[in-house]
């Protein structure tokens, strides 16, 4: 039996299976490439571009680029991180992200990625869009102010829950998350708090009601280590969303 095929990520050999993308292989190997719209449980979407790397010197979204044997992939370089930082800054100014009073703070992949990339200011002018919250559902709150259009809820509701409750409507700069119901309200869908879609949001858009701030400072997912020390932060965030007790959470962000 021959050795598995590998590519190099910043000089480190990463083994991959046929059909895996660079990011899928990296996550499986425990190597971190910054990402927001990617989740290991779902088909890659390739929209946020934060996982951009260079493959043989050319830019590519690592979540949608197939791994090939012998490829030379560069990710953690000052130039690429500067580009990622600008992407994250644009996400911050396009929505209304008020971390100081956000209950997702400390459990948020956008915030954690921004910290990790050394973002110290939004840099660009804020859009301050007007996005009213949808609090119609008895168990879930939708705060569209924080949406980064990753489409994970769209994919989860369609591919796992079989409900097709969310969609990205419009195009370009007008793209926005909508709820697939006659009234446009979440209360008029059959979404429940047990759905996969209710637990994949990497930011603070889809939230369980009446739970905010139940986790004390110091015990939130990214209080424990930076996101770059967790190849698959999605799992830790999902556990936080599911309301698992975190008093004894291990240092890698996973429950024992």
């Amino acid at each position: 039996m021959s050795a598995p095929a590998t590519f190099t990520l910043d000089g480190r050999a990463i083994a991959f299976a046929e059909g895996q993308t660079i990011l899928q292989a990296a996550v499986a190997a425990g190597a971190y490439i910054p990402h927001l719209c990617f989740h290991p449980d779902f088909k890659p979407h390739g929209s946020c571009k934060v996982c951009t790397v260079t493959v043989g010197g050319r830019h590519a979204a690592s979540c949608t680029t197939r791994a090939t044997a012998g490829a030379v992939v560069e990710s953690d370089t000052p130039a690429i991180n500067a580009e990622r930082r600008a992407l994250v800054q644009m996400l911050f100014v396009e929505g209304n992200h008020f971390c100081p009073s956000c209950e997702k703070s400390g459990d948020c992949k956008l915030q954690a990625t921004a910290y990790d990339l050394g973002m110290v200011s939004p840099h660009f002018d804020h859009f301050y869009p007007d996005r009213p919250v949808d609090a119609s559902h008895p168990e879930l709150l939708l705060d569209f102010n924080r949406c980064i259009l990753c489409s994970l809820c769209v994919r989860a509701s369609r591919d796992v829950d079989g409900k097709n409750a969310f969609a990205l409507a419009w195009r370009g700069i007008r793209t926005r998350l909508i709820v697939n119901s006659r009234t446009g309200k979440l209360a008029d869908t059959n979404v429940t708090a047990a759905d996969k879609a209710a637990h994949v949001c990497p930011v603070g858009v889809i939230l369980p009601k009446r739970r905010g701030f139940a986790t004390p400072l110091g015990r939130r997912v990214f209080d424990l280590k930076p996101i770059s020390a967790m190849a698959d932060a999605s799992a830790a965030v999902a556990l936080a969303e599911a309301g698992e007790p975190r008093r004894d959470r291990q240092s890698d962000g996973r429950l024992p």
């Binding site: 100081p100 009073s101 956000c102 209950e103 009213p132 919250v133 609090a135 709150l141 009601k209 009446r210 739970r211 905010g212 701030f213």
Partner: peptide, 14 residues
């Protein structure tokens, strides 16, 4: 106004 009530103690202290 228009914010969920559990956010209030954290927000208003600002």
């Amino acid at each position: 106004q228009g914010r969920p009530y559990w956010e209030v103690p954290v927000m208003v202290q600002r």
